Amino acid sequence: MAAVFVAARLLQPDYPWLGFVAAFAEAAMVGGLADWFAVTALFRHPLGLPIPHTAIIPRNKDRIGANIAEFLEHNFITPDVVRNELKDVDLAGIGARWLADDANNRAVAERIVGTIPAVLNMIEDRDAAAFFGGTLASGMKDVKLAPLTGQVLSVLVANGQHIRLLQKVLGLVGSALEENRGYIRQKVHDHSPKWMPKMVDEKFYERLMDGIQSILDDMADENGAWRERFHTAIMELIEKLEESPEYEARLRGLLARGITHPLFREYVAGVWADIRGRLLAASESPESRLLLRTQGALRIFSTALEKNDTVRTKLNEWLKSFATEAIVERRSLIVAVVRKVIDKWDAETISAKLETQVGSDLQFIRINGTLVGGVVGVLLYAISLVLGGH
């Protein structure tokens, strides 16, 4: 514009119409310089001169950071905004489709199984025994053991299971006697006086075995007195369990002694060691059954989730509600990060970053200022000619 202004001024005596060109160029220079000064003053001191009210962004960096953070907090990270943005997002469907891919569910299964050794190695066998014992004691603390046992027995009696149980026990006893006849005979001989004839021992053994077998047969007889006594005893026991505090105290004492007994702790520790060993072996194998089952479970879950609209809708509602609450409740942390990052930037850095982001738009501001100034200059020149002519 300066070059056009000089050329137009030099040639204007020979070409009077160039006065309009000179007026355009003159005003365009003023408009361009004014916009250059205004834009430059945002980011730095024009020409390096400490002119008041220039370098606005560097001087107000902290206030700008605080304002940006506050603007984000109250205009973007609000329940309505976050909820509205998540409204049409099918989070559960996206997750289901992602898990349906074999590579993805394999990666998730490996990550799940891979955490097992670290978790298991943190738990000592004694701690596991103490935990299971404490959990059992705590879980049974408010349970009435005697009435509960009575109810279980009532169900067994109602279905005739107590008779089947008795028959099973009698069958086991009979089998045990038959399989250990030689052992019993030897015990009879061992405990008989040395002067006792062996024939007498044998007769005593046979009488003993016949007597025991006769009792077992009587107990197994459906119409025998033993069966009636057994049923009566069970019914009396059920009644006492449901009503007698003494039985409750006995059962609770048995439970307490059993849980604290070293044998129980050793048993639990042994079971835990076996479970841990199996899980560790399964988790360390690249193609273990545990890994394949986990992967299969994830695949089944993803397929079922994608096909079940009701479950997916409910899960989406929960996920969106959780995400909204989590984001909004932590918005102060989010804006604190924004403010902290901006506070760490020096004046030159923030100026350079902002100028880089809006540089092309600022260039158009300068160009527009130049063109608008030139148009205004032509209009003013024309008005001056009209007024001068009058």
Rank of each mutant, 00 (worst) to 15 (best):
A282M: 04
L371V: 15
V338K: 06
A225M: 12
I365K: 00
G19Q: 02
L165I: 01
N105A: 01
A100E: 11
V108G: 02
L49D: 08
R227W: 01
T115G: 15
E348I: 14
G369T: 02
R44I: 10
T40P: 06
G182T: 06
S360D: 12
G253H: 13
A326P: 07
M122L: 15
R63G: 10
N121M: 11
A92Q: 06
T78W: 02
F131S: 09
D62P: 10
P79R: 02
L315D: 04
R366H: 07
E178L: 10
R207F: 15
G270R: 01
P245T: 02
D125A: 12
A352Y: 14
Q295K: 03
E236Q: 08
N308R: 04
L72F: 11
L380D: 01
G182I: 03
E325T: 09
K141R: 11
V30W: 00
A23H: 00
V39Y: 09
F132T: 13
E348Y: 14
A382D: 01
S285P: 05
G171P: 00
L385F: 01
I116L: 12
I212K: 00
A41I: 05
Y267V: 14
S302A: 09
W226L: 15
E206V: 15
E239W: 07
L172M: 12
K144P: 12
G114L: 04
R250E: 03
V89P: 05
E317S: 09
V338L: 01
I342C: 03
D127G: 11
A282G: 03
V30K: 09
D101T: 08
N223F: 10
I367R: 02
L33K: 04
L319Q: 01
L290E: 03
I184W: 00
D127Y: 11
E242R: 00
L18V: 00
A281R: 02
V372N: 04
E206D: 14
D343G: 05
I300D: 12
F5N: 12
K344L: 15
L33I: 08
N60H: 14
P197K: 02
A69L: 01
A336L: 13
G182W: 10
G369E: 06
F301T: 06
I300A: 13
K320Y: 00
E228G: 13
N368T: 07
V341Y: 11
Y205T: 03
A38Y: 06
I163G: 03
R330K: 11
G133I: 11
P245H: 03
K168Y: 03
V372A: 02
W195D: 12
G253L: 09
L145K: 05
E248N: 08
L333R: 05
R106A: 11
D90R: 00
H191C: 12
Q357V: 15
W272T: 03
R293K: 15
A347V: 02
T78N: 02
N67K: 09
G374Y: 00
N104P: 04
E287Q: 07
W345C: 14
W272D: 01
H189I: 15
G139Q: 11
N308F: 06
